[in-house]
Design a protein around this nucleic acid. Structure first.
Lengths: 216, 216
DNA sequence: GCATCGAACTTGACAGTGGCAAGTCTTGCG
DNA sequence: CGCAAGACTTGCCACTGTCAAGTTCGATGC
């Protein structure tokens, strides 16, 4: 019946063959771009297929279903963020640099970042995903361990959670455009201001802990 | 033609009338529950209509479109979080209590919280929404201002961003189940550990700022 | 060179979705 | 009562993700 007639919206100039060559890669790239542009909810498999110049069901062949595409994106994202943070671990300022690298990753790969932290989108039991995520978490812990002051009585977990929360929260709020109108267009400009805020925040936290210990 | 035959999946026991009475409220409540249970992406207007016992197009009458429902949820969320934080502002521990209240709101109203910080879901130019959001932001600033140590040279904006980021990041990571397996089931248990982490984080930040000032 | 086998696609169908236009019921007000 | 307007219902459309079945093509073995 059919004789390979599908063309979608692909320009005539692009040579069309039955086998795409690297459809898996093309789908991920298009999906990340779509997530970044219009959000994960609005991302459509058929639209992605159209852009790649394949039929509407082709992406599902490689990824199983919609969640499969997001699983691949999240896995790639956890690998990328590990690569971003790993080089700065170990030095005296490793923890601050790690936090900055975390934020930088989020701002440079907003599509990946959005998917990574929305587990309802993907297959949470995928082995590759789990391994990539564990590796990323391990880097966080390493960074905290190396930066822990020798005279501090605080536990590592508390430091990891505090640092991770601060970095993650800033990145999230920034990407949601909740900070842009309050801080100006470029996030690196006010890094010092935020670091100062963290110092003050530490003082306030200490005051409260002392107060509890004294009155309790 | 028709004689008011629609019934959806509503139990027979529920008296059915043409006018629901408070469909607007019912739709918001059902939508929040759906977002909490299956995520905003999977929330369906038709499913909500079914649960409310009205026809599939009834919700759109009150909210215009899907984004209109999310706009109403976000607006309600910003009002609720303002009510949650407002009572704790002013005291010596106001900033820490405010952060705790912020996290508490997120964990108690995960449906609202998810929608509030995903602007791609709703109508960002809605006047009610903008007013509610500004009021919530104002409370954050008030809390920071009241808690600012008199001897601190840091600026308020830096403190607000640092505290907001930490609270927001923790809440987000917790709701994404990224912390649950690392911290145990109940977030209040390890509040002291996290506060200790914030103290350490402040020390690390100060060290880095001093280092930069010394070497630069 | 040639058959053939499996991977990489296409095609077509299905149930479900959001949005729109047009119709219908009901309440409240004169 | 009459009637206008608000609160819905109904039916339709284009679109979506998923599935089953068919088609094409490249590699492998002979």
């Amino acid at each position: 019946m059919s004789s390979f007639g599908y063309r979608g919206d692909v320009p005539e100039s692009v040579p069309r063959r039955y086998h795409h060559g690297d459809l898996r890669r093309a789908v991920i790239d298009a999906a990340v771009a779509e997530v970044q542009a219009i959000g994960a909810a609005a991302m459509s498999m058929r639209e992605i297929a159209r852009r790649a110049g394949v039929s509407h069901a082709a992406p599902a062949y490689h990824f199983g279903d919609r969640a499969g595409i997001f699983t691949a994106i999240a896995t790639e994202g956890f690998r990328l963020i590990t690569e971003t943070i790993a080089p700065v671990v170990g030095g005296p300022d490793g923890f601050m640099l790690g936090g900055a690298a975390y934020v930088r990753f989020a701002l440079e790969h907003p599509g990946h970042f959005e998917v990574m932290f929305r587990p309802d989108l993907y297959h949470g039991d995928d082995p590759d995903l789990l391994a990539a995520r564990e590796a990323a978490f391990a880097i966080l812990y390493d960074t905290a361990e190396a930066a822990m002051p020798s005279d501090s009585a605080a536990d590592i977990t508390g430091l990891v959670i505090a640092g991770w929360s601060a970095s993650h929260g800033f990145a999230t709020l920034w990407l949601n455009s909740n900070l842009r109108d309050k801080l100006g267009p470029d996030p690196t400009t006010f890094a010092a201001s935020i670091a100062g805020g963290m110092v003050t925040l530490g003082e306030i936290a200490r005051r409260q802990l002392d107060g509890e210990a004294g009155s309790g």
